[in-house]
Design a protein around this nucleic acid. Structure first.
Length: 423
RNA sequence: AGAGAGGUGGCCGAGUGGUCGAAGGCGCGCGCUUGGAAAGCGUGUAUACGGAGCAAUUCGUAUCGAGGGUUCGAAUCCCUUCCUCUCUGCCA
């Protein structure tokens, strides 16, 4: 949620930046918010003054009763009158506050100055690219063929026991999953991240805190009658650990990592680009989350990106790093770098990591602050996938396929216990 | 899931209708004391919103799990809800 006090100070800046996202009517929205907030302030003052009077009267009555003075009827009537008035104003104030919040909650984060303009993925900027040599370009198969051939993943029975998008990993297919998870967790630990095992069901407040709720409710599976949601990413529980916290500056940075399954409804498209592992309802992901102070979050984002890049590189697959344009930027994010890996069997780039700085957008929603000597300021939150498994698996299989085998990247050998998958 | 007990400031804990944002203690900050430390003494120590001020600060309002109600007045009474503990049941 963008900060209303900052809107007042940096109005032009907010309007211009949000226009980058294609919000044409943002000027009017901002004006409306400020005027609503003015109304709110004036109601608040009125209400406070009335309550002040009312409190004074109550004390007066109390004193009179104590001293035996029974002449309090007039005061009581006066007090009741004030109360009736204050009730009206109080209701008006609540309405106003709700109105403001409803607008604020639906305004996306302000893009960082570095974020390029543009309204589709065409306008994303390629920052870097690293391509590995691939042998025998002619006969490269997509991973869904390899999976069948080498019997690694069983989509049909997953379909039977649950539904489309819920694969069953088997034998070496399952081992690769476990190897990747362990490898990613171990590497993160080496970089100073603390391993966390969070719940994979979260409540509404948590969904609101990281920005999935209220407007993106459709992406999450909801548990009927419990008001709980299955997490679409570990970002939600990991960040919400610190909801309503005030963290001492000396305790920063907070760096957490978690492996969780992730659940996404992803209603909508299908076709070859969502075949196989390209898009699933349940998938595994290792996520890193960092909490930083304002002055250090830029650097933290860079470090996280470097870490993610080094992970992908170690798997000996082709990848590229993109800076997302404003139109492609997630709702809550201020700046996001995407990492895509190449899947040579389908000749397609697949997104496997998104590293974002949310700045104060999430912390303002969840009331997460940092204590700097006397001042308390909103924290900056960041997160990134390190990494999402399915597309990494797809890329590994398609990149390292050979005639009758698939090679396993060297860094995984000690985790898989095998160096290749044979027919 | 059933029965009972309870949720108060960073922590412990008092407070059953009136001046309580809340005693007391611990912890922590600052000052005094000391050659230095401990002890001791003094003093301070929540959050949000609104007003005044360049600011330090100051005034007001709200907050004693959350939400609603009764009352001139609620931490205290009533209702709803969430959570914790104990016992019973069930269970990986």
């Amino acid at each position: 949620m963008i900060e209303i006090n900052k809107i007042r100070i940096e109005k032009e800046n907010y309007i211009n930046s949000l226009k980058k996202r294609g919000l044409e009517n943002i000027e009017k929205i901002i004006e409306d918010i400020i005027s609503l907030d003015d109304d709110r302030k004036s109601l608040k003052s009125k209400l406070d003054n009335l309550l002040f009077e009312s409190n004074k009267l109550a004390k007066e009555i109390g004193n009179k009763i104590k001293s035996g003075d029974k002449n309090i009827q007039d005061l009581k009537i006066k007090s009741t009158e004030i109360k009736d008035k204050s009730k009206l104003i109080s209701e008006g104030l609540k309405e106003k506050e709700l109105e403001i919040k409803n607008i604020l909650v639906n305004i996306p984060n302000v893009p960082d100055d570095k974020v390029p303009e543009g309204n589709s993925e065409e306008n994303n900027i390629e920052i870097s690219k690293n391509e590995v040599l691939i042998n025998d370009n002619e006969q490269l198969k997509p991973h869904w063929d390899l999976i069948k051939e080498f019997d690694l993943i069983d989509f049909d029975n997953g379909n039977k026991i649950t539904g489309a998008g819920f694969p069953i990993y088997r034998d070496k297919g399952a081992k690769i999953q476990r190897a990747l998870i362990n490898y990613f967790l171990d590497e993160a630990e080496k970089k100073g991240y603390t391993e966390i095992q969070p719940p994979i069901l979260v409540n509404e407040d948590s969904g609101f805190g990281t920005g999935q709720l209220p407007d993106k409710e459709g992406m999450m599976y909801k548990i009927e009658n419990e008001n709980l949601f299955m997490i679409p990413t570990a970002e939600v529980p990991l960040t919400n650990i610190y909801r309503k916290n005030i963290i001492d500056e000396e305790k920063l940075p907070i760096k957490n990592v978690a492996y969780t399954p992730c659940f996404r409804k992803e209603a909508g498209s299908w076709g070859t680009h969502v075949r196989g592992l390209n898009r699933l309802h349940q998938f595994d992901k290792v996520e890193i989350v960092q909490i930083e102070s304002e002055d250090k979050s830029d650097k933290a984002l860079e470090e996280m990106c470097n870490y993610v890049e080094s992970l992908i590189k170690s798997l000996e697959i082709s990848y590229r790093k993109l800076l997302l344009c404003a139109g492609d930027l997630g709702f809550s994010s201020s700046i996001t770098y995407d990492f895509e890996v190449f899947a040579p069997g389908q000749k397609r780039w697949l997104e496997c990591s998104s590293v974002s700085n949310f700045k104060t957008y999430q912390s303002n929603r969840m009331n997460l602050k940092i204590k700097k000597s006397k001042d308390k300021v909103l924290a900056h939150t960041l997160n990134g996938s390190a990494l999402a498994l399915p597309r990494i698996v797809a890329s590994i299989l398609e990149t390292h396929q050979d005639k009758n085998e698939i090679k396993i990247p060297e860094v995984l050998h000690k985790y898989t216990g095998f160096k290749k998958i044979n027919l």
